[in-house]
Amino acid sequence: MTRRRAIMVLGASATVVALLSAAAWLGGFRLNLTPSEPLGLWRIESPSRAIAAGDLVFVCPPEAPLFEEARRRSYLARGLCSGGVAPLIKSVAALPGQHVEIGKEVRIDGRLLPSSCLRRTDGVGRPLTAFAGGIVPPGTLYLHSRFASSYDSRYFGPIPETGLLGLARPVLTVDP
């Protein structure tokens, strides 16, 4: 194979990969490489009903110093949400008006939230500050992941539902 032909094949291959990636992105497909939810290919679906507790969702966190620090600490991947972070995949644990109590574990309206132990430090020993708890304000969602080291509302509190991208549907995933 001549050098010129090799360059043309590489260029064509790169173009095909770029076009397929753009089509997947526009079709709502996302790749999850974090252990907060199963690894693999996911799809964002527009909800046909109101978001409910227990729904698994994609959400962009708001631009805020707390999330900038989370990005610096590598809790959040780089992505296309405002602030340069990737969307989060989390379960909706509480809706506006529900009471979140933070102790060693989380309780929602008095009921224990499974897999909700709080950590005092992250994986490299840096301190973590827990959300204070309280009533979930209107227009926000309290998010959770069953993964013990997940960065979720246990630490950042409820976030605006305006960042909601849609329901998270696994396409081809494996548990970490």
Rank of each mutant, 00 (worst) to 15 (best):
M1I: 12
R5L: 15
A6F: 15
G11E: 02
T15R: 08
A22V: 08
A22S: 13
A24H: 03
W25D: 14
L26V: 11
L26I: 13
R30S: 07
N32R: 01
T34H: 01
P38C: 02
L39H: 08
L41M: 09
W42M: 02
S46Y: 06
P47E: 09
P47Q: 09
R49N: 04
A50L: 10
I51Y: 06
V57R: 00
F58H: 05
C60A: 10
E63P: 04
R71Q: 10
R72I: 00
R73H: 11
R73I: 07
R73Q: 12
S74Y: 12
S74T: 13
L76S: 01
R78T: 14
L80E: 11
C81W: 02
G84C: 09
A86C: 04
P87T: 05
P87S: 05
L88D: 05
L88R: 04
I89G: 04
I89H: 03
I89Q: 03
L95Q: 09
G97P: 00
H99V: 15
V100A: 02
I102M: 08
I102F: 00
G103F: 00
K104S: 14
E105H: 10
E105W: 05
I108C: 07
L112N: 02
P114V: 02
C117R: 13
L118V: 09
V124E: 15
G125Q: 04
G125F: 06
P127V: 08
A132L: 06
H144M: 01
S145G: 07
R146K: 12
D152F: 08
D152Y: 07
Y155T: 09
I159V: 15
P160T: 05
T162D: 10
G163R: 10
L172W: 14
V174Y: 07
